[in-house]
Amino acid sequence: MSRSHLSRRQVLAGVFTLPLSLPASAGLPHEVRFVHGGFDGATYQGGLLVRMSTGWKTYWRVPGAGGIPPDISVTGNNVAGLRFDCPLPQRFPGEEGETIGYKDEVVFPWSLTPIDPAAPLRADFKAFVGICETMCIPVPVQETVELKPLAMVARDSALLLQWRARVPTSVTPGPVLTASVAEEGGQVFLDLTLDRAARDVFVEGNALHYYSRPEWHADGRRARLSVRGAKSANAVQGSTLRLTLDTSGQGLEQYVNVS
């Protein structure tokens, strides 16, 4: 089976052909596999485990400059829906720009809801992540499993609990009190006021816009983020943004409307 080692620019340009699967083996800088945590009476719990060698990283939903966001999907009988979450990420500077994601190890937890909780199901999982250092490896993974509605503790339950605890909590109202847009010198900025100090803010909105690392006011509760890709303040004003805040290691998620 062929294996592609590509630069981040090549990956985003789509100039490669993906194999159907890429199993971890000796010599590769990663291990990527599905893990399972059992049935809680309503949903099946699991995750996608990504372990990486020193210096390698994988990415968050908004990956930054040249990163590759994770994707997990499922088909099968008795499958109503799948939700997967991203733990709180961190930023990494680089020659090609800033990226957002994870180093060493991460688990992306998922919850699979059956149509009939009392019936077994067959699930065909597919996932895709990018593992990057100076070059990138696209890693597709797939697995077919038979799941039965039995209350039990699976071998990966402790690992899943550890990483699910790192998934940001959605809060309403949240710590962000105001969100407004400003334009100065041809550059667009997002200004935030918080009710507490935070270490970082990650922003999701228009896919063509990227919100840089916040610059904090001396009081630690006001932040300004430059908005790359926005041609004017009008492109951001009135929009709804999804914010993920790192408040001393605790992740909080909040939606805000920009004035």
Rank of each mutant, 00 (worst) to 15 (best):
V79G: 01
V79Q: 05
G81A: 07
G81P: 04
L82R: 04
R83I: 04
R83Y: 13
F84Q: 08
F84A: 07
D85V: 09
C86A: 15
P87V: 07
P87H: 08
P87G: 09
Q90N: 10
R91V: 10
R91M: 09
R91Y: 10
F92A: 05
P93Q: 06
P93M: 09
P93K: 08
P93D: 13
G94A: 08
G94Q: 06
E95I: 12
E95V: 12
G97F: 12
G97Y: 11
G97T: 11
G97V: 14
G97Q: 11
T99Y: 01
T99S: 13
I100D: 01
I100L: 06
I100M: 07
Y102Q: 10
Y102I: 11
K103A: 15
K103R: 13
E105T: 15
V106I: 14
V106S: 01
V107T: 05
V107C: 12
F108I: 11
P109G: 06
P109K: 02
P109Q: 05
P109D: 09
W110Y: 15
S111K: 11
S111T: 12
S111E: 15
L112V: 03
L112T: 02
L112F: 06
L112S: 06
L112W: 00
L112R: 02
T113P: 03
T113M: 11
P114W: 02
P114F: 04
P114H: 06
I115W: 07
I115D: 12
D116H: 07
D116M: 08
D116R: 09
P117M: 04
A118F: 08
A118D: 12
A118I: 11
P120C: 04
P120F: 00
L121F: 05
R122T: 15
R122W: 12
A123G: 05
A123S: 09
D124R: 11
D124H: 14
F125E: 06
F125G: 02
F125K: 05
K126Y: 09
A127G: 03
F128E: 06
G130E: 04
G130R: 01
I131Q: 01
E133D: 15
E133F: 12
M135Q: 12
M135W: 09
C136P: 01
I137W: 06
I137F: 09
I137L: 05
P138E: 06
P138T: 11
V139W: 03
P140I: 01
P140A: 02
V141H: 04
V141F: 04
Q142R: 13
E143D: 12
E143P: 00
E143C: 05
V145Q: 02
E146N: 10
E146D: 13
L147D: 00
L147P: 03
L147V: 01
K148C: 07
K148I: 04
P149G: 01
P149Y: 07
L150T: 14
L150E: 15
A151G: 07
A151K: 05
M152Y: 12
V153R: 14
V153P: 02
